[in-house]
Design a protein around this nucleic acid. Structure first.
Lengths: 192, 192
DNA sequence: GTGGATGCAATGCAGTCGTATTGCAACTGG
DNA sequence: CCAGTTGCAATACGACTGCATTGCATCCAC
């Protein structure tokens, strides 16, 4: 088994470049050569690690999902043990929203992939799972345990994300809307 | 002034073809020739009515916005005069959601344009206006007149749309979430 | 009629795309 | 030390892209 290179590392290196390109030029600007240039490697190497473009896209998509997963986990961990449900939800959702310039890039990529998968249903199964899990978790934390309310909160988050990216809402407006929603769900005007 | 052809009609004919292509193959599949074939016209004609591809895209985007505007207006008109606020909101939002196969196509195009404009901020000003107007209107109808709550409801709608398109929510789930939200906003469990 | 504007089709061009192929350097197990 | 696997670069290919150009009907104003 000759040559020792970390395949996973190379692949994420390329995926990172892909995300950078997608973040400021859109997914349709993602091409093998473009990504390769952005990554500072040869186009041949990209081909070496991803036999097809779709394979590369799928991997990048999985990285996006993984990253947001990690963001949530870290944000929750920062809360310490047994946080109040309302604060917990607010933290999770705020962690997933594209509120600053850095997370906006990730958000743009995620949005691009959303449109991408809307046309390629097979590639969306992962996203579906993630949403379902999150819905169930949110429902378990809500005082009412209401699944429909949980689905609504999640949808509100997604919509806030979209509007933040589109420039329709400012970060402040989005957080206000989120807090107003939590007020509704928890009944308490501003306990958190 | 020779030759009398309805420019506007030709342009919408082409825009319709564009939307059909975008709806089932994604925006990145939209090319001059592709759209021309779908429209059953020559590529040269497309060029004749849109000097550049971006111009064509911008026009199609305006058509999308116009269509949804019309859908809302019609749905509201069907309610008769002075409808109950809750029913009014439900009707408007339901009219904007991609609930059936037909409106799903429009929704896919809209989503694609969302990602498209996220990278071309200048093309998004129209969308911003529309959102702002809708927010103000919703706030004026809500019992609390709360702008943040209105923004939240709008975001919830957008998120429901996204999840409907992604297959994460069924039409029933989306409507349940919407009704649950209206329950929260209007205090009444199921008066509508 | 006829000059001129217009509607539209056809073709050409330079560039980019994804991918298959080829070649070579580097390294490692025996 | 060397066969063989692997990492990677380079190139070629056909398809496609947006756009510019050209040419030719068609129609209106005069």
């Amino acid at each position: 088994m000759p040559k020792k290179v970390d395949h996973q590392q190379r692949r994420t290196l390329i995926a990172d470049a892909l995300m950078r390109v997608a973040a400021d030029q859109g997914l349709e600007a993602v091409s093998l050569r473009h990504v390769a240039t952005e990554a500072g490697v040869s186009a041949g190497m990209v081909q070496h690690y991803f036999r097809t473009k779709d394979e590369m896209m799928a991997f990048a998509l999985s990285v996006v999902r993984e990253r947001s997963q990690i963001r949530v986990t870290e944000a929750v961990a920062r809360l310490g043990e047994a946080p109040a449900p309302r604060l917990l939800l607010r933290t999770i959702i705020a962690a997933l929203l594209p509120l600053d310039a850095h997370t906006r890039d990730d958000g743009r990529v995620a949005l691009a992939f959303l449109a991408y998968t809307a046309v390629r249903p097979t590639a969306a199964t992962g996203l579906r799972e993630g949403t379902a899990q999150l819905t169930a978790f949110i429902a378990s934390v809500l005082p009412t345990n209401d699944v429909a309310a949980a689905a609504g909160l999640l949808a509100l988050m997604e919509g806030l994300g979209v509007y933040l990216l589109g420039g329709q809402y400012t970060a402040e407006q989005a957080l206000d809307a989120l807090d107003a929603q939590l007020d509704l769900l928890f009944g308490t005007p501003a306990t958190a």
